[in-house]
């Protein structure tokens, strides 16, 4: 379904054996796919908890108290946020092709190979032209 998730390099090999770093990154992406499902399942756990009786006995509170549900839901929520923070740093560490600033430079390479006949950089040449004009 997902041929490439854009985290690898442009010409990365698609072989059964990849270097450790690439392998780690791919397993990381597997975790990223599973995480929302796990989160959804955890959020659904309270549905299995005992509910309030239809005919409650007087003065005996039945079912799960609201406070426990509240604590559980927000604990899972905080857990997910912590996971997201961790994943964010893992992405920064492992998916360098995606986070690296050289991605834009790659584009520039493709579209704009430097002119072979003009070695000086454009801003310098513009500045030079301007200096000449002022002189």
């Amino acid at each position: 379904m997902i041929r490439s998730d854009g985290a690898g390099g442009r010409d990365e090999l698609r072989t059964p054996f990849v270097e450790r770093r690439t392998y780690r990154r791919r397993r990381l992406m597997d975790i990223a796919r599973i995480a929302p499902l796990v989160g959804a399942l955890l959020f659904m756990v309270p549905l299995l908890w005992p509910r309030q009786d239809l005919y409650p006995a007087p003065d005996v509170p039945s079912g799960t108290p609201m406070s426990s549900a509240l604590v559980y839901i927000f604990a899972v929520w905080i857990g997910l946020v912590v996971f997201a923070v961790g994943f964010s740093y893992a992405v920064r560490r492992w998916a360098v092709h995606w986070t690296g600033l050289d991605a834009s430079a790659e584009v520039a390479e493709v579209l704009l190979e430097p002119l072979p006949e003009t070695p000086d950089t454009p801003p310098a040449s513009v500045a030079a032209a301007r200096d000449e004009e002022q002189a």
Binding site: A35, G39, I73
Partner: peptide
């Protein structure tokens, strides 16, 4: 507590941001 589902949905979507 049902109100919280309105925010759980987007949270799950954000957690699965990568794909």
């Amino acid at each position: 507590l049902e109100y919280v589902t309105i925010y759980l949905g987007p949270t799950l979507v954000m957690i699965g941001w990568w794909w």
